[in-house]
Design a protein around this nucleic acid. Structure first.
Lengths: 340, 340
DNA sequence: CTGAAAGCGCTTACAG
DNA sequence: CTGAAAGCGCTTACAG
C-alpha cells in the first residue's frame, strides 16, 4: 500500500465498530476498558482492532475529554549531565503512567522560556515541570495561576504559590563546611558558577551561614567561568585572593571537574596541597582520580519526585502548594586531607 | 477567577471572532497569517485574542489538518552524556521550527521501544528520530513503512530503507590505529562495552580492519562491564591477556573514563606506561588529566542533522532513503606516547 | 474579504 | 449491553 493510499484509508473507531458489528459507543467503551461491555463483545472488538490495524487517536479524544496525556519539562541546559539525570527521573515516572513528556531547553533565557510555556499551552499539556530560568519574574507564578496550569518547580523556585521539589542546598553546604572544619581547615573558598537564581543563592547563603557558625571567614567567594573548558585555566583565581585557601567547596560538579583538572595542571596534588569538595555528585565524581568527596543532591530522585508531585497536582488541583526538599548526603572519598 | 470557573470559560476561536466582529473563518485566517485578510481586520482580531487571552488549540487543529507539530525522539539511555548531547542537537533544530519533541527512553529494550513507538503513533507524531535498541528486528522497518511514519535512524541502523544519520566509526578506528601505529605501537587492545548493535559492530570491524591493514594482530578485544563504576575495577582485564597491550582504544567515553581511573588505581601513568584513546569525545575528555586523545563523533551535530533530515522527509515522503555519515576527527591531546 | 456549513475522530449522556 | 445524536475547537472549500 502506498503512502497516499494509506492516508485516505485511515481506520477510525467507526470502522472498527462496523467490522465487529457493534456501535461506535461500544467500541469506545472497549477502548477505555469499561466493565460495561461483555467479554465476548470485547474480544470481538479487540480482534477487529487488530485486523484493521487501528491506532487510537489521542488528539481526537482530547477534544472531548480534558486530558492530553502530555507533560512538559523545561530545563535551562540539556548538555549538563545533572539535568540529563533529572530528566531521566522525570521520564521514568511519567512514562510509567502511559503519558508522554515534551522536552524543551530554555537555555536559561526568560524570553525563550515564555515561548516554550506558550507552545506547551497550545499543545494542551496536562502540566509542566519547570526549572525556571535565571531572572524569571516572580509574577510568572500569577500568570501560571491564571492559566490554571498545573506546574511544579524543580531545583529552583520563584514563588511559594507553586509546588517545588529541590534539595536542601544549605544543609549540603553545612555538611561540607563541617567536614572540612573537622579536618582542621579554616581558609575555605567557595567556587561559584553559573547564573544567579534561587539554588545559587541558597548555596552561597548556605556556605556563608555554615562558615559563620564555625566562626570562620566566609569571604573567599570566587565566580568561575560558565564553560567547562575555561574553568581549569581559571584555577589561578583561587590563589589570587588576599588569603590563600586550604580547601575549596565547588558550586557543582562542573566546577569540581574543572578545578580538579586545573589543580593538576598547576602541579598541585588534590587532598594534599588543597582539599576539594564537589557538589551534586553526578556519576563522574567516582571516575575522577582522586575520587572526589562530594555533596550528593540526587538529581534522578528529584526528577522522580517532581513527576509524582505533578501527577498528584493534576488529579487534585486544589491542594495547597507543597515543598519537597530532598536531603543531601556527603560522600566522603579521597579529595580532602588536613591543611598543610 | 477560580480553577473551575476558568474551565467552562475557555475562550475559543468563535469567541475571538465575535469579539472582533468577524466570522470564525476570518479569525482562523488571521491565526495562520493568511494574506487574504486586511491589515485593519487583522489587528482587530489580534487585539481580541489578547483581550480574551486566547490560546490556540493545536490538538483541535490537528484533527482537520494532517500535522501534529510533534516529533518523537527515542534513545536507549538518557543518562549517558553522549545521548544528552544528541538530544540537545535534536531539540535545538526541531524547536526552531516551532515544533515540539516528545522524549522517550527505551532502556535499550526492544519491547519497551515497541510500546513507545505505539504511544507516539497514538499521539500522531509527524515523525520520529530513533536510535534503535540492540537486537531490534530488521522487520521493524517494514512495520514503519506500513504505518507510513517518517523515521530517521541515528547512530545505529537496522535497515537501508530508512534514513540514517551516524558517524564513520570505521574511519575513526582507522585514525586511532594509524596514530598509535605511527607512535610505534603494535600491541593495541580494543576495550569494548555495551550492547551489540550496528555501531558496536562497525567499531569492532573497523578496529579489526585497521589493524589488519597495518599487519597488526587485532585479537586483543576485551568487553568491559556496562556500569561506569565497574569499569575501573575491571582494568586488570587488560593485563590478563596472552600478549600485554601497550595501547588501548576505547569503545566510548565511558570506557575511557573508567579505564583512565582504573589505570591510575593500578599506579600506571597514562601516556607513559600505557597509551589510551577515547571515542566520542564528550565534554569530559578535556577535563580529565592527562587530557584524553580521542576520536570525536560530534553527537550534537549528528542530532542536528538527524532533525533536519526528518523535517525534509516529512515534507517530502517520497524521497529515496538517505544515509548521512559524519566524518570523525582525531583530537590529539596527552594520553598517548611511544610504547615502553 | 466574509459567512454558513461540513467534517476531522473521539466521548458522553440519554433512551432503549 | 447498544444506537443515535450532540459536541469538543479547529480548517476548508464554497458561495457571495
Amino acid at each position: 500500500m502506498s503512502f497516499d493510499e494509506r492516508k485516505k484509508t485511515r481506520v477510525t473507531l467507526l470502522d472498527v465498530a462496523r467490522h465487529a458489528n457493534v456501535s461506535r459507543a461500544t467500541a469506545s467503551l472497549v477502548l477505555r476498558k469499561s466493565p460495561l461491555v461483555g467479554s465476548e463483545t470485547r474480544s470481538r472488538v479487540e480482534q477487529a482492532m487488530r485486523d484493521l490495524g487501528y491506532v487510537y487517536n489521542i488528539g481526537a479524544a482530547r477534544l472531548r475529554v480534558e486530558r492530553s496525556q502530555i507533560i512538559g519539562a523545561i530545563v535551562p541546559n540539556l548538555t549538563n549531565p545533572f539535568f540529563a539525570e533529572l530528566l531521566s527521573g522525570i521520564e521514568e515516572v511519567i512514562g510509567e503512567t502511559g503519558k508522554v513528556v515534551i522536552l524543551a531547553n530554555s537555555g536559561d533565557r526568560v524570553e525563550r522560556q515564555a515561548t516554550l510555556l506558550q507552545r506547551m499551552r497550545e499543545h494542551g499539556v496536562d502540566g509542566v515541570i519547570l526549572c525556571p530560568a535565571a531572572r524569571t519574574a516572580p509574577a510568572l507564578s500569577e500568570e501560571i495561576a491564571d492559566w490554571g496550569m498545573p506546574v511544579v518547580q524543580v531545583l529552583r523556585h520563584i514563588s511559594f504559590n507553586i509546588d517545588y521539589v529541590g534539595a536542601d542546598y544549605a544543609a549540603g553546604m553545612r555538611q561540607a563546611v563541617d567536614y572540612l572544619a573537622s579536618l582542621g581547615h579554616e581558609k575555605i573558598a567557595f567556587a561559584a558558577h553559573g547564573s544567579v537564581q534561587s539554588a545559587y543563592q541558597e548555596r552561597v547563603d548556605g556556605f556563608r551561614d555554615a562558615m559563620l557558625s564555625k566562626a570562620l571567614d566566609p569571604g573567599i567567594l570566587i565566580h568561575f567561568p560558565t564553560q567547562l573548558g575555561e574553568i581549569a585555566s581559571a584555577t589561578h583565581l583561587l590563589f589570587d585572593q588576599a588569603t590563600r585557601p586550604t580547601a575549596v567547596i565547588c558550586f557543582n560538579h562542573l566546577v569540581a571537574l574543572g578545578l580538579a583538572a586545573g589543580l593538576h595542571d598547576c602541579g598541585l596534588t588534590i587532598g594534599r596541597d588543597l582539599s576539594l569538595i564537589g557538589f551534586d555528585d553526578v556519576a563522574d565524581e567516582e571516575a575522577i582520580r582522586p575520587k572526589l568527596t562530594s555533596v550528593s543532591t540526587g538529581p534522578v530522585t528529584i526528577g522522580e519526585m517532581a513527576a509524582r508531585l505533578l501527577l498528584e497536582r493534576i488529579t487534585n488541583p486544589h491542594l495547597p502548594p507543597r515543598r519537597v526538599v530532598n536531603e543531601t548526603t556527603l560522600n566522603i572519598r579521597q579529595s580532602c586531607g588536613r591543611p598543610m
